[in-house]
Design a protein around this nucleic acid. Structure first.
Length: 569
RNA sequence: CGGGGUGUAGCGCAGUUUGGUAGCGUGCAUGGUUCGGGACCAUGAGGCCGCGGGUUCAAGUCCCGCCACUCCGACCA
């Protein structure tokens, strides 16, 4: 490729709206361009990177007997009504009508399409297990896209669906996918990837894992043990805490606290530490509107994902202005109306000398002994794990890190095969709903995640395996006939030998060429100049600067081929 | 959906307070001098000042409405 013809503007200045490194650099290098909120166009270099990522994924999917298929982007409403998701999914799914007023949707995931494809063609246990996958565009009308390609509305995803006769069969295959995913991210060149247990969300599955690239700009929080290999998304990470009990329990006492309602206000007024207070957090069931009160130690926070799972329904923070049953700011476990649903966090188990709301305005109760004063209470783990708390497995300290979710794998169960009535006959001739697994990787997110992890002050640094080109061929003084002749000769030779070359055929200064090369992150730079030609050599340098060597012109191509094959696993 | 910010040349921005011929840097084109880490000189092309309405002799600037983008939050199979 001749750089002079490459479409894409490289700029010195950062785009003003970029908040993370990968966003700024991909725009500056002319790889991507915003078309609309959360919708991007990719220029040739970014497209080449995507192709390479896609091919690595294809190889690994094919290696676990995946069958590549293609589902449509546009699907009829009926298909999504079969699974029940036409109504359960909100504004994230784009719906529209065609010229005949028929309802259509844009695919944001393809479980329905996968079941549809298979259900009439697969009828016997002998055809299972199998896995089908595709690389295709998804559209999700995200409430808020951000971070360049990290979180977008339109994106290409590899999504795979496996079908099994038994949970055991699924688990066995799930492990193979688990390993395949680990290989994929390694080959793509991601370094700090952690596989964490995750919340299976509202998809109705059991076990799920997320592949997290650990980076400060990640949107998810991951809990990692400093000693053992316990790793979990904070959404499901279990909390382990010491009992919060003093030797002597005081008596219950109602105290006037006026307009003090926040934990820090009450604890300051009554001179008690925050962990000796009981915080009441209120939610409401998104569908029924039922009020939910969650009690937790005052210094801790509610983990809404855990609570949501417990409630079994979507919950939203409650707006209590109209409620006659509870008094916001003075809600406590003693004397609370039974019109609300109540949950207690395990941090309150056996706690004594606690301060809580009195369930009437301007009063709190002190001296609450949970085991003495509250009978028949069930405790659930609904709190958010904090830094330095104890690992639920080995008891050592936990660390929190941020991560970008670059892939996930999911044991789905029979939700879709049951809902859409897909059956196969088992060995006994009985109809059975197959058990499914699903597995996803976002291509653009993978690209930008690598960019986020791998860059320096000069620009991007692509791993050889997904670099848009292997070599940046950089002649200096193209007006020198000798340079020109040798540069073009080497360019042809490299391309003939299958080396991917970006040839900087522009008549500009060395500085411009070097900085464009660095900005675009091409792994190898080959300089041909009057100086190097004095010894009949070219200068070969890696983007990371850890390789820098003058090589005889006749050996350059073979040396470069060696470097490339050594750096691609 | 709530709160903030911004829309002026391809890109980055000033000009808006106080209405009076559309600016700067960079990039682009042409010519010349340079030439190993973003060179210099000269000349030049490039604008629906986000859109619509209003006030005014006169609007990038003032008023009203809308739209887009963006950041923070809510949301996220």
């Amino acid at each position: 490729m001749l750089l002079s013809k490459l479409v894409g503007e490289r700029t010195k200045e950062n785009p003003s709206d970029a908040t993370i490194r990968s966003h700024a650099l991909l725009v500056r290098a002319g790889f991507i361009k915003l078309v609309a909120n959360g919708i991007w166009a990719l220029a040739m270099p970014a497209r080449r990177i995507c192709k390479k990522i896609e091919n690595i994924i294809r190889e690994e999917m094919d290696a676990v007997e995946g069958q590549e298929v293609s589902f449509p982007v546009v699907m009829p409403r009926e298909l999504w009504e079969e699974s029940g998701r036409y109504s359960s999914i909100g504004d994230e799914m784009v719906r529209f009508k065609d010229r005949n007023q028929k309802d259509l949707v844009l695919g944001m995931t393809h479980e329905e399409a996968a079941v549809y494809l298979c259900r009439n063609w697969v009828s016997s246990y002998q055809q299972l297990p199998f896995m089908i996958y595709q690389l295709q565009t998804k559209f999700r009308d995200e409430a808020r896209s951000r971070g360049g390609l990290i979180r977008v509305r339109e994106f290409v995803m590899k999504d795979a669906y496996s079908f099994h006769m038994s949970q055991e069969g699924l688990e066995e295959y799930y492990q193979r996918m688990y390993d395949a995913y680990s290989r994929i991210f390694k080959r793509i060149g991601m370094k700090k990837v952690a596989v964490v247990k995750s919340d299976s969300g509202m998809m109705g599955g059991n076990i799920a894992h997320e592949y997290m690239l650990l980076t400060p700009s990640g949107e998810d929080t991951i809990v990692l043990c400093s000693s053992c290999d316990y790793k979990a998304n904070i959404e499901i990470a279990a909390s382990v805490r010491e009992p919060n009990r003093d030797d002597i329990s005081s008596e219950l006492e109602e105290v006037f606290t006026a307009d003090k309602i926040q934990i820090d206000e009450v604890s300051e007024l009554l001179k008690v530490p925050a962990h000796k207070t009981i915080k009441a957090v209120t939610y409401e069931n998104r569908y029924s509107g039922e009020i939910i009160v969650a009690f937790i130690r005052g210094d801790l926070e509610i983990n809404e994902a855990k609570l949501k799972k417990l409630v079994g329904k979507d919950i939203v923070p409650a707006s209590l202005q109209d409620s006659q049953d509870v008094f916001a700011g003075n809600i406590g476990p003693i004397g609370l109306t039974d019109k609300v649903k109540v949950f207690f966090d395990t941090s309150l188990k056996e706690a004594n000398n606690m301060v809580g709301g009195a369930n009437k305005p301007e009063y709190h109760i002190t001296g609450i002994d949970v085991s003495r004063d509250l009978k028949g209470v069930r405790f659930d783990d609904i709190s958010k794990v904090r830094e330095n708390e104890k690992c639920p497995v080995c008891g050592h300290e936990l660390n929190l890190e941020n991560g970008i979710e670059v892939g996930n794998i999911f044991q789905l169960g029979d939700k879709y095969t049951k809902g859409m009535n897909m059956t196969v006959l088992n060995r006994e001739g009985k109809a059975q709903h197959p058990i499914m697994g699903c597995y996803g990787i976002g291509i653009g997110r993978a690209l930008s995640s690598v960019a986020e992890e791998s860059n320096d002050e000069y620009g991007l640094i692509w791993p050889m395996s997904i670099a848009p080109w292997h070599v940046y061929l950089c002649p200096l003084r193209l007006d020198d006939p000798l340079v020109k002749e040798n540069a073009y000769k080497l360019y042809r030779e490299l391309e003939e030998q299958g080396v991917e070359v970006l040839f900087d055929d522009r008549d500009t200064s060395a500085g411009v060429k070097f900085s464009d090369c660095d900005l675009m992150g091409i792994p190898l730079r080959v300089v041909i100049s009057p100086r190097s030609l004095k010894n009949n050599q070219a200068e070969v340098q890696s983007r990371t600067k850890d390789f820098n060597k003058n090589i005889n012109l006749s050996d350059v191509t073979s040396e470069i081929k060696k470097i490339i094959s050594n750096s691609i696993l």
